[in-house]
Structure formats: structure tokens, C-alpha cells
Amino acid sequence: MSLICAQNLEFAHGGQTVLHAVNLTLAPGEIVTIVGPNGSGKSTLFRLLIGALQPHKGQVIRKPGLRIGYVPQKLHIDPTLPITVGRFLNLPQRVSVGDARQALEIAGVPGIRDQQMAQLSGGQFQRVLLARALLGKPDVLMLDEATQGLDQPGSASFYRQIDAVRRDMGCAVLMISHELHVVMSASDRVICLNGHVCCEGTPEVVSAAPAYRELFGTGTGGALALYRHDHDHAHDHDHPHTHTHEAAE
């Protein structure tokens, strides 16, 4: 049985249709990446899947008792709220000190349990969010542009960590990302979203699909080429897609 199954989702905001006719299923253990330009409804889709928003049409079926490990794009902690890393890891469920230590180690930030969340660097903060998500023994990890604000080596190592976690814990991973070159190489399946599902399939299939090339440009031969050539071609676009540069970075 699939972990999450979204059927024919439709969502509008302020009279504007953000998503329509979106179907998505996530099987146990697979890594699926959602890519798409800004405003394509990626984060909205995520919030529909975790139940923070209700679709206007269609439905989201979660496996009964599904445990979601959610790593948000950004988490603002009000400066009036003091909280240590150790305390944060205990939300909402209490965990043992040993488990908390282990989760921090897996996430790549051992030994910061007593620090205030507010004092962490961007990379440490994202890893603590990951550690907290892991402590719930999730069936699925959901990462919403979890590496935003990290530099390239930082995000590359973050994704290596995700891959290792999936291997060790066997959870499925559903992520949103702009960093096509890193993400596509690590995914089993890619869904290209722009209000609706433009195309989906293995990274190779999607990067060759006309709909994908229309969104992300063909000048570099797609994201896989970007991956191989790294930075060299990222600034060469001569067509008017404003999001392309951002997508390639």
C-alpha cells in the first residue's frame, strides 16, 4: 500500500488556482523529488499532504498511522522563546537522551544538545530539524527546500546524509528542491510541477521531457548536464525564463 496518495487535488488561493488535477503516490522507501519554478505550488502541495491545508477538490489519503518526519523550509523561532537543541528534539514526543544523541549524530551535528536553537548556524539548524524528524521514526521524510541558505558543499553533504538515512532507516523521502543537479541524481522519481504535474518519471526521463525543458531551459541540455558541468553553464541562458538561473544555482 502506498504511504501517501493524492487524488485529483485542486487548491485555489485568493481566487487564483494554485494547483489542479494533481495526482501523486509515494511508495515505501522511494525518494521522490518535486521540482518546479517559484509559484508553481510546490509548498502548497506539501502543506496539503501534511494536512495543514484542505484541498478544494480531490483528496489526500495517508496510510493509517502514517508517521511523517517533516523538515520545513525555514523555521522562525520567536526570540522570546528560549529553547535548547535537546528540548527541541523532544517535541512533540519525549525521547530518551540516548536517542536524541544518536539522532544528532546521524544528522551530522553531534554534541550540540545544550546550545540554544537561536545560536545555531543555518546548516546546523537544518540538521537539527532533520534529527528531530528522524526521532519520530518516520515512514516518510518530507523536506521542503531543506537546504535553502546552505552553500553548495553544505547542501551536497546534507543530501548525502539524507541518502544514508534512507538506506539505514528504510523510510521514503519526498522532497522539494531547486537544486536540480544534486537532487535529480539522488532521486528515484522526479515530479515536475507547475500548477499541475507537467511530467514525471526517472531523472533521465524527466530531464529529456519537452515540458521540463520548457520550464527549466534546454540551453544546458538539462539538469543532468548541469550536474556534470557544474557551474560552467549556469549563467549562459539567453532565453527569458527568469527562474532558470535560480533553478540552476
Partner: peptide, 19 residues
């Protein structure tokens, strides 16, 4: 306490945890 603290930190984290 725990539910309210989670919801205070982030509504989306709360939703994902079934709160």
C-alpha cells in the same frame, strides 16, 4: 503543554505530527 508548544513553534510541524 507539548502540543501547544509545538503549535507555537510552527503550525506546520504540528500538522505533520497530527496536532
Amino acid at each position: 503543554w507539548s502540543a501547544m508548544l509545538t503549535a507555537t513553534l510552527s503550525p506546520d510541524l504540528a500538522y505533520a505530527a497530527g496536532i
